[in-house]
Amino acid sequence: MRNQSLTGFALHQRKYRERSYILHFFSQEFGRVDGVIRQTPPSLYHLSILQATGKAELKNFSQLDVQGQPFYLQQKALFAGFYLNEILLRLLPLEEAMPATYQAYIFTLEQLKQLPKNDPKDLQLKIILRQFEQIFLEELGYAIDYFADSLGNQIDPAQFYLFIPQEGFIPNIQPRGFSGKELLLLGQDQQIRSENVALLAKLYRTILTELLGNKPLKSRQLWVSQQQYS
């Protein structure tokens, strides 16, 4: 890259040497781009434009220009924002455009900003997060076929299945996992609704756990701690 203009959002930054920062930036043009910036980096959830130069994985960032006002996230929405940034930081491929995820990120921040204070059982929050995960996982290449198992056989509504991210749904002789009836209903209506949000949470967590490996999500640990003391 040479004086490449990037529009996007800071995912994470950390101090680097005396007056610089390493900035992980989610851009509209090239997805995640990492670089060194020699000025105060943009705040989280604040649309920004900067210039990137360099052939190595770590670019030089300059000419930072923040746009308008940031998305102000409060209380539980703020923890959700931390979660979004963490899974993006850990799973986005480097310098590969992710247009659907980028648009979903902006839309999700807007929804989180407007999250109602009275959200029984955090239902609306869960729906918002599942919607983002669905788009992100599909663009990463993990679209789910709800109508066929790992061998290509049609899902049997009377059968139970385990889900293996690299393989798909595997028939399970034990009555645990996902019922075929549930899977077929998800396939027929992939809109995320209150009645299927728990099932999708279980399914998406299975995929994300596989992709993230053994290192736990810090944002999830913060969420659990907040729930314990709230």
Rank of each mutant, 00 (worst) to 15 (best):
F163L: 08
A77M: 12
Y45R: 13
T206Y: 07
I135A: 01
R14L: 10
Q75Y: 12
K117P: 00
L44I: 12
L84V: 13
Q124H: 13
Y16M: 06
Q51H: 09
Y16D: 00
R130D: 00
L23M: 04
E86V: 09
T7E: 12
E57Q: 15
F160Q: 06
E29C: 04
Q39N: 10
L222S: 08
F26S: 04
R220C: 01
F132Q: 02
K181F: 05
M98R: 08
E133F: 06
R38V: 08
R14G: 03
Q74F: 14
P99G: 12
I170P: 00
F61L: 12
F9Y: 15
N60W: 06
A80N: 01
L184K: 14
P116M: 13
G213N: 07
L203M: 05
V197S: 02
N196T: 07
V197L: 06
G152L: 12
I144S: 06
G31Q: 02
Y161P: 09
R205S: 07
V36H: 00
K218S: 06
Y83N: 06
L199Y: 04
N85L: 10
G8Q: 10
L200N: 00
S194Q: 15
V197F: 04
L44H: 11
S20H: 12
G213C: 08
Q13F: 13
I155G: 01
M1A: 07
F163C: 08
L212T: 04
Q4E: 05
E86I: 05
Y142I: 14
R2C: 00
T206K: 12
P120R: 13
T206D: 01
R205C: 01
T53F: 05
F132D: 00
Q51D: 04
A148Y: 14
L47N: 06
G180V: 09
A10G: 04
F136Y: 11
Y229E: 15
I127G: 02
N60D: 06
Q188K: 15
E18D: 13
L203H: 04
E57A: 15
F25K: 01
Y146G: 00
A104P: 15
V197M: 06
V66A: 07
A10Y: 10
K15G: 03
F169R: 14
L64Y: 09
V36R: 09
L91Y: 11
P120S: 11
G81P: 07
Q124G: 10
N153L: 15
L208E: 04
Y21V: 09
R130A: 02
F82K: 04
P165D: 01
Q69V: 10
Q191L: 11
E210D: 11
G168V: 05
M98N: 08
Q159H: 13
E86Y: 09
P93V: 07
P171W: 05
A143M: 14
L44D: 02
K121S: 10
P99S: 13
V66F: 02
N3W: 06
L123N: 11
S5G: 05
A100Y: 04
D122A: 12
N3H: 14
L208F: 10
L125I: 12
F160V: 01
P93E: 06
Y204K: 10
D122G: 08
E110P: 09
L73F: 09
K121H: 14
S230L: 14
K15C: 03
Q103W: 07
F61G: 03
P175M: 07
K55H: 10
Q39M: 12
A158T: 03
I22C: 02
I128A: 10
K76T: 13
F82V: 03
Q114L: 14
G54P: 07
L115P: 14
Q63I: 07
S230M: 13
Y204T: 03
T108W: 04
K59A: 03
